[in-house]
Simulated assay, not measured.
Amino acid sequence: MMFLRNIGIFNRSLLQRSVRFNSNSTFKINWPEYFRLKKINNRLNVGSGAVTGTMGVLMTLGGLANVEIDPEKPILGLDPMITFVGLLLIGGLLGYLVGPTFGNTIFKLSYKKHLPQYNAMDKIFLQKVKVNRVNPSSQSFSNPVPDYYGERIYSLKDYKQWLRDCNAFRRKSQEFL
Rank of each mutant, 00 (worst) to 15 (best):
F141P: 05
I29N: 04
F35Q: 04
A120N: 09
D147S: 06
R36C: 03
D70E: 13
L58V: 04
V131T: 14
K172C: 02
R43G: 00
W31R: 11
Q127A: 13
E151D: 14
K108C: 02
L64E: 09
L61R: 11
M2G: 07
L163W: 06
S142F: 13
V129D: 10
M55T: 05
V85Q: 12
N6C: 07
L163K: 04
R5V: 02
G49F: 02
E175R: 09
E72M: 07
S48W: 02
N11Q: 11
Y96N: 08
I153T: 05
K73Q: 14
V57H: 01
P146F: 07
Q174N: 12
M55L: 15
S25N: 09
K38E: 06
L14A: 10
P144E: 12
N41P: 00
N143D: 13
I82P: 06
V85M: 14
S23A: 04
P136A: 13
F21W: 11
N119V: 04
R170G: 01
S23K: 06
V19S: 11
N66I: 03
S18Y: 11
Q117S: 06
P100F: 00
G8P: 05
L94E: 09
L109W: 03
Y34R: 02
D165H: 03
Y154I: 03
P74E: 15
L64K: 01
D147K: 07
T52V: 02
G56N: 04
G103R: 01
M81L: 15
S18K: 14
Y111C: 02
E68N: 14
M121S: 07
N119Y: 03
N119T: 03
I124K: 10
L88C: 10
S23E: 11
S48I: 01
A50S: 04
K123P: 00
T101K: 11
E151L: 05
K28R: 14
N104H: 07
N6T: 08
V129C: 11
C166L: 03
F84C: 07
N66K: 15
G63L: 10
D165S: 11
K123L: 07
G150D: 06
M81W: 09
P80L: 11
P116D: 08
K38I: 00
Y149K: 13
K157H: 10
K123Q: 13
T101D: 05
I82C: 10
F107S: 01
R5Y: 14
G8S: 10
V67G: 06
A120Q: 07
M121R: 05
Y148F: 13
K160D: 01
V131I: 15
F84Y: 12
V145C: 10
Q16V: 02
F125G: 01
F84S: 12
I106D: 04
K123R: 13
S18W: 04
I124L: 14
N24W: 08
M1L: 11
N167V: 00
S137K: 15
F125M: 11
K160L: 05
N42M: 04
I75T: 06
Y159F: 14
G49S: 14
I153W: 00
T60G: 14
T60F: 02
I29P: 01
R12S: 13
M121E: 03
A50H: 01
Y111G: 02
I90Y: 06
I82R: 13
G91C: 09
N42E: 09
V67N: 11
